[in-house]
């Protein structure tokens, strides 16, 4: 079964859009850096396509982040919430 077919049961969320915005990277620039077409970056951001392990690693390398910071089985919290926490004294 292809990974996207399992999308509803086992979704893969990603932070690509947020990370691109943070670094000022266009879809085309990221696509060029990881050697895919810009439409594929759009499909990843929409959740229409789940990346192979190889592509996931290449994307993480561009952002110099570990895989779990970019891709996750559970929805991501906003970065600010993660950084500063909630209800911390």
């Amino acid at each position: 079964m292809s990974p996207v077919r399992r999308g509803k049961e086992l979704p893969i969320h990603n932070r690509l859009q947020v990370l691109r915005a943070e670094r000022g990277l266009t879809r085309a620039q990221l696509a060029e850096a990881v050697e895919v077409n810009p439409q594929t970056i759009g499909a990843l951001e929409r959740g229409d396509h789940y990346p192979s392990l190889d592509l996931a690693f290449r994307i993480c390398e561009v952002f110099s982040l570990p895989v779990e910071a970019v891709f996750s089985r559970t929805p991501f919290q906003p970065l600010s919430t993660q950084l500063y926490g909630k209800g911390e004294s």
Partner: peptide, 8 residues
């Protein structure tokens, strides 16, 4: 699909 506009 249609290409979505890229705000960046």
């Amino acid at each position: 699909p249609d290409d979505e506009p890229d705000p960046i």
